[in-house]
Amino acid sequence: MKILVCISNVPDTTTKITFTDNNTQFNNNGVQFILNPYDEIALARAIELTDGGNGTVTVINVGEASTEPTIRKALAIGATDAVRVNAKAHDAWYVAAQVAAYVKANPFDLILTGRESIDYNGSKVASMLGELLDLPSVSIIKKLDIDGDNVTVEREIEGGKEVLTTPLPIVAGAAEGVAEPKIPNMRGIMSARTKPLTVIEPVGVKTLSEIISYETPAPRGQVKLVAADDTAKLVDLLHDEARVI
């Protein structure tokens, strides 16, 4: 079984997000970049599914050379090999078009992404890939099992869940529950240095969207503290002042 895992390089959740140039540029300065947490889950499931020589796991990233430490991390965790499409990840459409071009030339049995990248939270790449490859896609899955040529996934719906089954290949976006992220061990880290990382040039794609500026949420006012024995006051405030009950 050949599995492709799409990985993105994102700012660590705990870093403070700031912008420069009149809020038009994301400030990279001092920001720690990590492998997107959901992509770690996708990768972990891919490694489980190919355990014991039962296939290969390729990771692909659309990014400039600065993303290579994150790609090496994925190799250290256990991916077989890696591909970097040498281009700035302009938007989800651009990324999906690059990955789709690669997959058309190099077919896979299963294509996994994360449910969303924690920077732009788009949840778009999986469905766009599905569309470009004319394959079923499920953008947020909580579980994935393979049985022969079929795959069964569980997805969340408002107030419940849905179980779907489809023949392989499929594109799916992994979320919590699909697998536990794996931590690279020493052997993994050593072997990651020599595992193949192929750099390919992008295909020409017209972009459809562009981020032109950023805003930070309006700061909340100072918290209003209510005494622990005066819950009636809190109810009044929620009714009269906040008007939420």
Partner: peptide, 23 residues
């Protein structure tokens, strides 16, 4: 941008060659 909407909007976007503003 419900759970289903998230699996739908990007596919419609590709079909219409439309930029997608999610969320």
């Amino acid at each position: 941008n419900s759970f289903s909407g998230r699996g739908l909007a990007p596919r419609i976007g590709v079909k219409l060659q439309a930029g997608v503003a999610d969320g």
